[in-house]
Amino acid sequence: MPTPELQRAHALVAEHLDTLFRVAYRLTHNVPDAQDLVQDTCVAAAQNMARLAAMDTSLHWLLRVMHNRFLDCARRRQRSPFIAAASEQHARRVVSDAPGPEELLQQADSEGALQRAFMRLDDTQRTLLSLRAEGYDLAEIETITGLAREVLRMRLHRARRTLAQYLDESNDATPAAGRVESGT
């Protein structure tokens, strides 16, 4: 059976499962990874139940745990040459300069393009835009991430601009790639 802390963490996560999964999916754009992130959040939450008392709402607290787990995993990926290689491969696949036929079709879809551009953002930018897209306001994001309000404003602004730039690059690349494909 789980420890009391793990059981409490399970109950907490269950309470907010839909929201946590939505945010996790926004961060990872991948269902298995989003599941793992929710599970990791639960385990990390179990180790930190005492901190619940310091947060205004349990959901903010869990999102904070998830945010930290997400950043930790990203750091670990960077430290591990094996995982980093796999991750790099994944990144190359999703933001490929030379897309395959399926990817070309996907690129025509603006949501697919948005997703690929989104995955090129750094982890913090993804977190901030994900939380904002889920409807959290600056005060809530401040609580969750621990970043100061003005820093948040600046980073959100920068994240949107970077995303726009990646989208533009993607839009520029698609017709060219399409021409190559159609010309062969």
């Binding site: 599941q35 599970q39 603006s110």
Partner: peptide, 20 residues
């Protein structure tokens, strides 16, 4: 910026998997 915010907010999110 406006368009991106709206697009992100409306992006399709899968249902929570049954196993989870």
């Amino acid at each position: 910026d406006w368009q991106i915010q709206v697009q992100l907010s409306n992006a399709a999110i899968p249902e929570v998997p049954a196993a989870l």
